[in-house]
Design a protein around this nucleic acid. Structure first.
Lengths: 208, 208
DNA sequence: AGTACCGGAATAACACTGTTATGCAATAAT
DNA sequence: ATTATTGCATAACAGTGTTATTCCGGTACT
């Protein structure tokens, strides 16, 4: 009934391409169709394999989701790393916040799973996952350290201030993803900008 | 041939107790065992009925979840309404924020469904649901109006400031529910209090 | 070479899920 | 009293995650 097996299976040891294809399909389905599209059978179809591959390669759907989330964290870290350090530390911080928000709005489903606590088929963040996620936090703290070092904002515990900025950004972005705030209503200028500006006691513009 | 089942009670003013029992079981299961425990069959068992009741009474699982969420919004509104107006408008605002956070932490699963955008079996917030949810927002704005009227904080657009407070509160609470911030680590005093204090340019203490 | 092996994938089955179709009992309407 | 309708139970359908079994193909011996 089925087509003949793939004529060229270059095994080549290290990373099974079945694993790669499953992860790729999972990331794409989550991004394009949302969490409900993430099913073992659907993944198997998309990756041209059987559901068993999910179990031999990952051990189950929750473990697969965990890897997708880990990749999401990695992509976020890389994205934040693209923000270069210029001589204007405050501008760098703003760019960091922009990159964070852009990444979240470009992959909203993934973002809510990463930070929103969306239970995806019984999967919840483990402490290890959260530790990975919190180096977002350290990126913010480092940027704040430089801003404080330049005397551009009040000097204090950068980790605490980073926690405040993260809370504010995260909260605004989650409400934005939920559809309560919409950039076309001007909420970016009316809510987000004043929020961060007041928090750091310095004018900030997140819009383009 | 036959139209969609009308979700409203059919004849007498009496609300079917099957409907009440289903909603009660749904709220309890969501609160105690999380979103994955919300299944039609499980609900039918808990309410001593059959899965069909879910469809005759509500029209399906998404509609039932919608009602649970609506009840959550109603409970939040009542909770916020218990905060009395004293002659200290700023203290009232703080109590409002405390009530908001306490309600969220007491029903974290419900809260993430209400505001976090957790897709629960394909259910997502409709615009009507969001409008109901945003009278939380107006409660905040009203409290801010009184604080501004008393000259305790800078006078400006209270709706915009309310949006900023809501973003900050929501973000902190979501990270708290996700397990990233833990009150036993002192994050309430180190992150949340300074966050709101700076936002309003007045000292605020959310802890007990 | 031949052969035993063994790991990963395919097939199928189990216990679930939401949903729909059917049937039935009781009530409302005529 | 007879008909129509309403509301739930039963059962079935298609889907889910997961597990057991089978089976095939490359690896590693002999």
């Amino acid at each position: 009934m089925n087509a003949l097996p793939d004529p060229s299976p270059p095994v080549s040891g290290l990373v099974p391409e079945v694993r790669r294809k499953l992860l790729e399909a999972a990331a794409r389905l989550l991004s394009e169709e949302g969490p409900s599209a993430l099913s073992a059978r659907r993944l198997a179809r998309e990756a041209s394999t059987s559901t068993m591959a999910v179990y031999t390669q990952f051990g189950g759907m929750p473990a697969l989701v965990r890897e997708v989330v880990a990749e999401g964290f990695a992509r976020l870290r890389e994205r934040l790393a693209t923000v270069e350090h210029t001589d204007d530390a405050l501008a760098d911080l703003v760019q960091l916040c922009r990159a964070y928000r852009e990444n979240a709005l470009e992959h909203p489903n993934l973002y809510t799973v990463m930070f929103g606590g969306t239970s995806l088929g019984g999967y919840r963040l483990s402490r290890a996952d959260m530790d990975v996620g919190t180096d977002t936090f350290t990126a913010l703290a480092d940027a704040l350290d430089r801003v404080m070092g330049a005397g551009l904002i009040r000097r204090e515990n950068s980790r605490h201030v980073a926690g405040q900025c993260w809370s504010a950004l995260h909260g605004y972005i989650m409400l934005e993803i939920a559809g309560i705030y919409r950039a076309e209503d001007g909420t970016t200028e009316l809510v987000l900008d004043p929020l961060l500006s007041r928090l750091l006691a310095v004018p900030i513009t997140m819009g383009p």
